[in-house]
Computed example of a mutant assay.
Amino acid sequence: MDPVFLELWQDYWWLIFPLGAGVIGISSGIGKAWERNAKRRHRQRLEILQAKSAIKAASRPAVAPAASDATESHASQLAKLFATHDAVTARWLDYELDVAKLIAFPAMSDGRQPLTAAFLRAQRIADGLRPASPKARLTAEQLSEYRNAVVDYEVAFDVAERDARRLKDSSFTEAERKRLDTAKQLLSIAIDQAATPAERQVAYRRVREELDGLIALSDDAIEVLETQVALELAPGSGSASGSGPEKTDAATPASSTPAPSTPAPTTAAPSAAPPSTTPPPAPNADPWPVPARKAPAPGIRRDPAS
C-alpha cells in the first residue's frame, strides 16, 4: 500500500463519517424520488382507465326506460303536486270562509296589500297551469312549469300569511278598529247556539253593518256564516212548541180554552196543509198552535164566544 495513502488515512480517517452520511442521504433522496414517480405513474394509469371507461359508457346507446315506469313516475309527480296545491288552497279557504279569521287578520282578504296581491297572482297562475287529472299527459317543460307555479303559490301564501299575522288590524284607524271589535263581539252572539233565533238574526245583521266598507266578504263566506247563524229547528222546535202550549193551558182557566172548532183541520183532514201555513178562516180565532211568546198576558182573559 502506498505510504502516502496510509499517512493520509491516519490523519483524515474521521472523514468517513460525514462522507457516509452524505452517501446515505443521497441514496435516500433517490429512493423517495423513485417512489413519488411510481405513485404518479400509478395515478396516471387510473385516470387513463377511468377516461376510457367513461368514453365507452358514452359511446353505448342509451336504453330508454319502460313506458309504464315513465307513466307511473309522471303520475306520481302530478299526484304530489296536486296534494301540495290542494293543501295551500285549503289553508287559504280557512281565512276566506271564516269571518272570525277575516276580522282578526283582514290583510288576507285585502288585495291592496302587496304580498296578498302577489299570492293571488300566484294562485291564478297555478290554477291555470293545473292539469285536469294526474293521468294527463304533459311534456317535461309543462310539468316543470306547473311544479314551479305550485312552489311559487306555496311560498307566496306563507309570506302573505306571516305578513297578515304581523299587521293584524294596524292598517285601520281607531274608529275602524272599534267597529271591528264590535263586529267580533256580535259574531260570537250570532253563532252562539244558546242565543235565541231573534238574537242571532239581529247580531248577524249588525255584523254585516259593522263590516260594511271595512272587509269585503265573499258570497261563499256569507253563505257559511248564514249556515252557522241559522238555528236547527228540526230537533228543538217540537220541544219548544210543545212546552209552550202546555204552560199556557196550565196557566189559563178552563173558560179561556179555544173553541173545539179550532183544531178541527187536523182531526177531520189529516192530509191537509200544516195549521201554521193555513190558519182557520174564523176572524176571531188565534192561529193554531199558538207559540209561547204569543200567549196572552196572565191578567187578560178571552171569552171564546166573543
Rank of each mutant, 00 (worst) to 15 (best):
D94P: 04
D94N: 10
D94E: 06
E96H: 10
D98P: 07
D98Q: 04
V99S: 07
V99M: 11
V99I: 05
A100F: 02
K101M: 13
L102A: 13
L102G: 07
L102P: 08
I103P: 01
A104G: 09
F105C: 07
F105V: 01
F105H: 08
A107W: 00
M108W: 11
M108H: 15
S109I: 11
S109F: 06
D110K: 08
D110Q: 04
D110E: 14
G111Q: 10
G111Y: 10
R112E: 03
Q113K: 11
Q113Y: 14
Q113M: 10
Q113W: 15
Q113V: 12
P114A: 04
P114T: 09
L115A: 14
T116D: 15
T116V: 05
T116A: 08
A117K: 10
A117L: 13
A117V: 02
A118I: 01
A118M: 01
R121D: 15
Q123H: 10
I125S: 08
I125A: 14
A126T: 01
D127Y: 04
D127E: 12
L129K: 03
L129E: 12
L129I: 03
R130A: 02
R130Y: 00
R130Q: 00
R130D: 00
P131Y: 00
P131T: 02
A132L: 12
S133N: 06
P134K: 06
R137V: 09
R137Y: 13
T139G: 09
T139D: 11
T139Q: 06
Q142H: 13
Q142K: 15
Q142L: 11
S144W: 12
S144V: 12
S144C: 14
E145S: 12
Y146K: 06
Y146R: 11
Y146V: 10
Y146P: 13
R147P: 05
R147K: 14
N148W: 15
N148Y: 15
N148D: 05
A149P: 01
V150P: 02
E154R: 01
V155L: 03
A156P: 01
F157E: 02
D158P: 07
A160P: 03
A160T: 04
R162G: 13
R162H: 10
A164V: 00
R165C: 02
K168P: 05
D169C: 13
D169A: 13
F172E: 03
F172D: 03
F172Y: 08
T173F: 00
A175C: 04
A175K: 09
E176A: 04
K178L: 07
K178F: 13
L180D: 13
L180G: 10
D181C: 08
T182I: 01
T182P: 13
T182W: 11
T182E: 15
Q185D: 15
L187Y: 05
L187N: 12
L187K: 12
L187W: 11
L187C: 12
L187G: 06
S188W: 06
I189E: 01
A190N: 03
A190S: 09
I191A: 08
I191T: 09
A195V: 07
A195H: 05
P197E: 02
P197N: 13
P197K: 14
A198N: 12
A198S: 11
E199M: 03
E199Y: 06
R200W: 13
R200N: 05
V202S: 03
V202G: 01
V202Y: 07
A203S: 00
Y204F: 08
